[in-house]
Design a protein around this nucleic acid. Structure first.
Lengths: 194, 194
DNA sequence: TATCATTTGATACGAACGTATCATCGTGGA
DNA sequence: TCCACGATGATACGTTCGTATCAAATGATA
């Protein structure tokens, strides 16, 4: 499937708007201005707004999973489950502006998924299950059963998501988050290397 | 501060709309219809929309904290930290329609807090810090230091929030969540009763 | 009875929205 | 050369939104 370039630019503009102002900031005219194209062209690709938003979210889900596959290819094999989990926290927690943006995107997606189970809901599930599958797969290869690995993957994902929310809301400093996670990992360790 | 009855009805209508359709579903006309009053009356109380939404969110933050204070008054004292944490998961996880609604409200609030740090952001922080203060207070009274109690409170809140999201997105069954939490608590136990 | 808060009705205004329409370029292949 | 197609521009339509305005009921209270 050729990505057409232009269409990608427009979807990236949608992402930026989502990050900056949530779902309400995504209007056809705002997308046109952000992508620096005419309103007519935004209609030209992705004719309807729902279609455009749906395609953007689908692309987003793919990107978030792909990001982890790429990481696994860089460091693969040499890591134990504890290192993998630690790396997941490092990447998932909103500590710099890039990961803050990503967290904001996730919250927008989550909100959309509630309102619109069809379009955004499917994209959100794709995003989450893709992440869970990957993380569970990496964890399983060591000394965990499949079901235990998936359970741990979901626990880590849940904790990371929740801590991210607390971080962004200013309830938790970055330093507090680090010691919190260190404690959490210390509790986890005896179970992972018996 | 007299609560005026009518104003409360209107804010409850706002809550129902938030639960059902997110922020976008909250329009002055929709609020009027939901509360079964005229549009004019919605303007009469809470003259502007931001004002109305802000008051609703503020009230919501108070309610969520009060809910826990009430619970602590019912069961007080007799509980160890582990029981308190277990009860928190039981109440915070979206397992019935009422707690699902509450979770949806929280996500709406979270999304609003990103877009609008002023109004919704303050309400969200009030909600979170109120919960953290209460939970940390209950946990501290036993064998945890103040900082350790707060850290644990935030960890539990984060995990509950994240697992709630995974539950509502269908990535986690209620049964899986229960065993996951049981495992988590088992890991926690040795630290709480030394 | 007179006053005042409360409630409703009908309606209007400007803005922003999604969407549609018509005309127009430029450029590469037939 | 012609023509089809991708890409734009300008503009308009109908809807919905927040907000405002003028008028009029209702009911309690003083």
């Amino acid at each position: 499937m050729e990505e057409s370039g232009r269409r990608t630019e427009i979807m990236e503009a949608v992402e930026r708007l989502l990050v900056r102002g949530g779902v309400n900031a995504v209007t056809m005219r705002a997308v046109a201005a952000e992508a620096d194209v005419s309103l007519r062209l935004v209609q030209y690709y992705g004719s309807t707004k729902d279609e455009l938003l749906g395609a953007t979210l689908d692309r987003l889900a793919d990107k978030s999973v792909e990001r982890w596959h790429a990481r696994a290819r860089r460091h693969g094999e040499g890591e134990g489950p504890l290192e993998v989990i630690k790396a997941f926290f490092d990447e998932a927690l909103p500590t710099d502006s890039a990961s803050e943006d990503f967290h904001r995107l996730g919250v927008s997606l989550e909100g959309l998924a509630i309102t619109n189970p069809g379009m955004a809901g499917q994209a959100y599930q794709k995003h989450l299950s893709g992440l869970a599958d990957h993380l569970a797969g990496v964890l399983q290869s060591n000394d965990l059963s499949a079901t235990a690995a998936r359970r741990l993957a979901l626990e880590v994902m849940g904790l990371a998501h929740g801590l991210g929310t607390l971080l962004m809301a200013g309830q938790l400093s970055e330093l507090d988050a680090q010691t919190l996670i260190k404690n959490y990992l210390a509790r986890l360790e005896p179970q992972l290397s018996p």
